[in-house]
Design a protein around this nucleic acid. Structure first.
Lengths: 255, 255
DNA sequence: CGGAAGATTGAGCAGGATCAAAAAATGTGG
DNA sequence: CCACATTTTTTGATCCTGCTCAATCTTCCG
């Protein structure tokens, strides 16, 4: 039984216009590298809706694909239901990260997107976006960059799931979140997890108990300090080394 | 200790021009949905190289990203090396499937691409492709479709790895390959695996022995017949049911 | 034909899932 | 604001399954 109510609770976003130019996610999101006039073009397309409550869905699996979504605040998870009815989380999405691009091929969403916390989300109708991209090369470029980022990110996830040790899988997730928070101007060494332990378990394909024990081990090893959802990473380099990365100065994943 | 020689064996593809218009992968590849004149535009960009031998690489991880690749014949695997030096396969690529799109964001390849068998591969310099896409909306659309397909495909892989039973993981791979072969005009019920058991193991994140035993079980259950690399699927519906799919007429993944 | 790599089969072990229960956190209504 | 109910998280004990090690058999090359 999920926490979600069985009734349809899909949020229809309203028609408020956006101000991408002044958005602090500017550099992470679609506007990156675009001129003011081009951003204005984009703003005609984007609509901001009213905040989406925790547990509410942006869209559900198999629904027709009409738009992509970008949270401005609040985290979102995407998942499908496994054959046994369990949630299989395929992604956590922080502000500035595009959601729903996988729906374009089949013209329907491949996953369900649900807010992990109160979230403000931008909605971009895809047909309009594609039209605009055909006229604005910088937009086309950035859109493809975001898709490429998505592909590369999913590959990283595959590598994370491929690791056999639960502690390393968890450490890889924490490291990933740390870097993504850092790019958003938050601390890389201390942050609040937007998701529950069960969500982490469903993402790492582990039992919730195993996740709990993995947190314990990482803490005992002195790699992280955990207090509920608050995580403090003692040394990013050490944690990276624990994950098997040859530590070499700077990190990957730009912008 | 890979089978690969330690010396650089990157294949530089030659400058032969392509004939996308008459290619039998037309409908699967970039030209899909494009007019003749638009395909001609594409042909100016594509170059076919001489066949790539088994074990040869199209590109290696961390090399600068310059082009994407599409095999016309022959299968390709993409992988990275895990912390323990083992191969972590993140994708098998059949003819008509684009390779290398994940390299665009970071301007460098995120994986190594290696031919599983003798393969003819088309090379598309990405800067030229992007320029052309800006002028030809149909090309832009198709390029984005292929990227979306890639994202959706990786998500499916995540779900495959998420399954805890080795037999189901293997069955999901076989089912996936079956459908992809079928789209290429080959038999969905009988085909030759282009990859070794060890490759399958590295892809499913299982021990090679476990893969061998999983094949045995599937065979004993009467779901498949296996003779070396030859696989015969008795009933696709039964196999799908075994994987936990609610069987409902047609299958997913178009084009 | 011979050597080497690949695939299969068997035995034992270790680690993560499962079941069960307690503890902590969260939220709700009075 | 507090008490209570519910959910979430943690901890413990046991079981099972996939990994490991080892040997045999097969296939694929030169």
């Amino acid at each position: 039984m999920t926490a979600d109510s069985p009734t349809a609770n899909v949020v229809t976003l309203g028609g408020l216009k956006a101000a991408c130019a002044t958005c602090n996610l500017h550099e992470l999101c679609l506007p990156h590298g675009m001129k003011d006039a081009e951003v204005a073009e984009l703003e005609r397309i984007v609509s901001r809706g009213r905040p989406v409550g925790r547990g509410r869905t942006l869209f559900r699996i198999n629904e027709p694909f009409r738009a992509i979504y970008v949270p401005r605040s609040g985290a979102v998870k995407t998942y499908t239901l496994g054959s046994d009815g369990s949630e299989q989380i395929v992604g956590f999405h922080l502000p500035g990260e595009v959601i729903g691009l996988d729906g374009m091929v089949e013209h329907r969403h491949q996953v369900t997107a649900e807010a992990l916390e109160l979230a403000s989300v931008c909605e971009l109708p895809f047909d309009l976006l594609e039209h605009a991209a055909a006229r604005v090369p910088a937009l086309q470029h950035q859109l493809m960059r975001l898709m490429s980022r998505e592909i590369a990110g999913k590959e990283q996830q595959l590598l994370t799931l491929g690791d056999h040790s639960p502690e390393r899988r968890l450490a890889l997730l924490l490291l990933d979140l740390s870097q993504r928070f850092a790019h958003r101007g938050f601390s890389a060494s201390e942050f609040n997890l937007p998701m529950s332990r069960q969500d982490i378990a469903a993402y790492l394909r582990l039992a919730a108990e195993t996740v709990s024990r993995a947190f314990g081990k990482l803490q005992r090893e002195g790699l992280v300090e955990v207090e509920g959802r608050l995580v403090r990473i003692a040394s990013g380099a050490e944690l990276a080394a624990f994950c098997g990365y040859a530590v070499s100065g700077s990190q990957r994943r730009v912008c």
